[in-house]
Simulated assay, not measured.
Amino acid sequence: MIHAPRGAVEFRAVRKNYGSFTAIPDLNLLIEPGQLVTLLGPSGCGKTTTLRILAGLETPSSGSIHIGGQDVTRLPANRRDVTMVFQSYALFPHMSVLDNIAFGLESVGKNTAETRKIAMQGLELVGLSGLGNRLPSELSGGQQQRVAVARALVLEPQVLLLDEPLSNLDARLRRRVRTEIRELQQRLGFTAVYVTHDQDEALAVSDRIVVMKDGVIAQDGTPRELYEAPASEFIADFIGEANVIDCEVLAVDTGQARVRISDQQLTLPARNAAPGPARLAVRPNAFGVSQDGKGLAGKVLSSAYLGDHIEYEVDSIAGRLFVVDSENKTAAPVGTNIRLQLRSGGIALIA
């Protein structure tokens, strides 16, 4: 029986220099056993370098890496007890699915009978029983991805690493396969470190998301924490998109702030805010759209009907805003004067 990898991972004051350039200045991060933690950020933020250091493909300039309580900083990649699922899947095209899964087992000295038995278990694990004799080219992209995951899991590493594992799939297949990966991780409870630049993907699969910027952790938390309580304008805009608008904090009492925006007032978690000027992160679907009443005054610059909602670009007294309207079925024409009412959800005070 295949046992799920469940080792803890810890980065202790890890630094990575490339000549005079510092890619990662000082990384401290603990990943608990059985968690799926996603490293998320724009290109050049340090997430791939962090994963490669963990895999043993890069050596840190200083600091240490610990897997399952063992210091592995100076161990080569093949002695770290981790396996990686690559962006390209790296399946052997001339070998059957079963032989692809068995390849790693054979390389570590398992005998033929044992290798075949474990490889069959790996196929069953990812829902591909009966497809072992096919070539990778005879499978869909999603099935190939599952073969790559099975090949990694049968080695029973302490940690499974996934490097942009869905980037080669189309949008619809990406949604399905990310659900399959999450369901498999939750069922088996394995420890995984997942790298992506796709915010929706990170929100869908993660126990925790570590957002990186310039090699530094910008925020670390659950998907809900990052979406509903972004720590900065960068996080608010990077996780799920947000409009950042000026407001005034009128009063703070017992952790709640009374906030004024134009002719509206809201009560929000204070998040260390003090009375005076402040800023809000407002999700696009946190606006109600009407052509009269209270709210931010604005004019429609563009509109797009997308079936179950309408997207607007609005020139308002608070600046240019992106608005998603799921209530009205007919788009207001370009040039229409509208009012935007702020709802209670999808709004947060930010630093």
Results as ranks from 00 to 15, higher is better:
residue 239 I to Y: 01
residue 239 I to A: 03
residue 239 I to P: 00
residue 240 G to P: 01
residue 240 G to K: 02
residue 241 E to A: 11
residue 241 E to M: 10
residue 241 E to P: 00
residue 242 A to T: 04
residue 243 N to Y: 10
residue 243 N to F: 04
residue 243 N to T: 06
residue 243 N to G: 12
residue 244 V to Y: 03
residue 244 V to E: 03
residue 245 I to T: 09
residue 245 I to M: 06
residue 245 I to K: 02
residue 245 I to W: 10
residue 246 D to S: 11
residue 246 D to G: 13
residue 247 C to I: 02
residue 249 V to Y: 07
residue 251 A to L: 06
residue 251 A to G: 07
residue 252 V to K: 03
residue 253 D to P: 00
residue 253 D to K: 15
residue 253 D to W: 03
residue 253 D to M: 01
residue 254 T to F: 08
residue 254 T to W: 11
residue 254 T to A: 15
residue 255 G to M: 08
residue 255 G to I: 03
residue 256 Q to A: 14
residue 257 A to V: 06
residue 257 A to L: 08
residue 257 A to W: 11
residue 258 R to M: 15
residue 258 R to K: 14
residue 258 R to N: 13
residue 258 R to H: 13
residue 259 V to C: 02
residue 260 R to Q: 13
residue 260 R to L: 02
residue 261 I to F: 08
residue 261 I to P: 00
residue 261 I to R: 11
residue 261 I to S: 08
residue 262 S to Q: 08
residue 262 S to K: 04
residue 263 D to I: 12
residue 263 D to V: 09
residue 263 D to H: 06
residue 264 Q to D: 15
residue 264 Q to L: 08
residue 265 Q to P: 00
residue 265 Q to K: 11
residue 266 L to W: 05
residue 266 L to Q: 09
residue 266 L to Y: 08
residue 266 L to F: 06
residue 266 L to R: 10
residue 266 L to A: 11
residue 267 T to C: 07
residue 267 T to E: 14
residue 267 T to Y: 02
residue 268 L to C: 14
residue 268 L to R: 04
residue 268 L to T: 02
residue 268 L to Y: 05
residue 269 P to N: 08
residue 270 A to V: 10
residue 270 A to W: 08
residue 270 A to P: 04
residue 270 A to F: 09
residue 271 R to Y: 01
residue 271 R to I: 01
residue 271 R to W: 02
residue 271 R to C: 01
residue 271 R to H: 12
residue 272 N to A: 11
residue 272 N to I: 03
residue 272 N to D: 12
residue 273 A to H: 15
residue 273 A to K: 02
residue 274 A to M: 13
residue 274 A to S: 15
residue 274 A to D: 12
residue 275 P to Q: 09
residue 275 P to W: 06
residue 276 G to V: 13
residue 276 G to L: 09
residue 276 G to S: 05
residue 276 G to P: 02
residue 276 G to C: 05
residue 277 P to I: 08
residue 277 P to K: 12
residue 277 P to H: 11
residue 277 P to N: 04
residue 278 A to K: 09
residue 278 A to E: 05
residue 278 A to S: 14
residue 278 A to T: 01
residue 278 A to Q: 03
residue 278 A to G: 04
residue 279 R to Q: 15
residue 279 R to F: 07
residue 279 R to N: 05
residue 280 L to S: 13
residue 281 A to Y: 05
residue 282 V to F: 08
residue 282 V to I: 15
residue 282 V to K: 00
residue 283 R to N: 09
residue 283 R to H: 13
residue 283 R to V: 03
residue 284 P to F: 07
residue 285 N to F: 13
residue 285 N to L: 15
residue 286 A to T: 13
residue 287 F to G: 02
residue 287 F to C: 04
residue 288 G to T: 14
residue 288 G to W: 00
residue 289 V to S: 01
residue 289 V to F: 05
residue 289 V to Y: 02
residue 290 S to V: 01
residue 290 S to W: 06
residue 291 Q to W: 03
residue 291 Q to K: 06
residue 291 Q to N: 14
residue 292 D to T: 10
residue 292 D to H: 10
residue 292 D to P: 09
residue 292 D to M: 10
residue 293 G to F: 13
residue 293 G to P: 09
residue 293 G to A: 07
residue 293 G to H: 08
residue 294 K to R: 14
residue 294 K to E: 12
residue 294 K to L: 10
residue 295 G to I: 05
residue 295 G to A: 02
residue 295 G to K: 05
residue 295 G to L: 00
residue 296 L to V: 15
